[in-house]
Design a protein around this nucleic acid. Structure first.
Lengths: 123, 123
DNA sequence: TACAGAGATTGACAAACGTCGATATAGACA
DNA sequence: TGTCTATATCGACGTTTGTCAATCTCTGTA
């Protein structure tokens, strides 16, 4: 799975049909490729432990957290935490910075806001 | 899987530790039960075809769509569409109304906005 | 009553996912 | 050089997921 770098994809699109069982014009509907990118980012948020990781990282005082901070409060082993962190980094939600032996994680500025705005109509 | 009815759960929480490898105080971190509820709703958005369903439903002129409108533009068979619709309804994102033989779907007012706001700090 | 059609449910199958033990990698330090 | 330690990767496992053919349920109409 590779990192996702594209930005907001819109959900609020218009179609022109009005009768039942006349399919929407394929023109303005969210296309599969864009939908796949968006879905991949929501998938990164679809696990309770990853949401808890985000909660811990985004609320730490220095806005940075290392892996050792996460294993205990989550009740998960180190490889599992590392696995979840990789998913969040690949989704473009977390930023990883290695300093010495430690890896520090922080929320990518604007990442969650961009995802949130993709849920809202118009923009 | 049962329907989810609870509302916004917050992500922007504070902890008080500052040194590395001192785990966050379990007090203010998103708890597992809340995280599970939130994750279930994001999971509903984690499939490209479900996002396309939302796109079609939310952009239809009468803000209602029946199953027959979805099968063809999605390129999915009727049971698969029905399956995805059930997931979106159970997640509290879509509303199903049966009128005669047809089932009409619409986006639950505020559902996506509530989900979007759960991604933003403070509120 | 019976028939037709829309949509829900069931069952099966392959693919993807979450978890963890074991192992590998890489930086700090003696 | 070698040892220690934090993190990443690998391999295996049981579970969950997306898809569809077949079937069931329910409603409108004759």
């Amino acid at each position: 799975m590779s990192a996702i770098t594209t930005d907001t994809v819109e959900l609020g699109l218009q179609i022109t049909d009005e009768t039942c069982c006349v399919p929407a014009s394929g023109d303005k509907v969210l296309q599969f490729a864009e939908a796949e990118l968006l879905a991949a980012r929501f998938k990164a948020l679809s696990d309770p432990n990853r949401l808890r990781i985000l909660s811990i990282v985004s609320s730490s005082e220095e806005l940075e957290t290392c892996v050792c901070d996460l294993s205990e409060p989550l009740g998960l082993k180190q490889p599992t935490v590392s696995h979840h962190l990789k998913i969040l980094v690949d989704a473009g939600i977390l930023h990883r910075e290695k300093r010495g032996v430690w890896a520090y994680f922080s929320v990518v500025p604007g990442a969650l806001e961009s995802l949130a705005s993709s849920l809202l109509p118009k923009n």
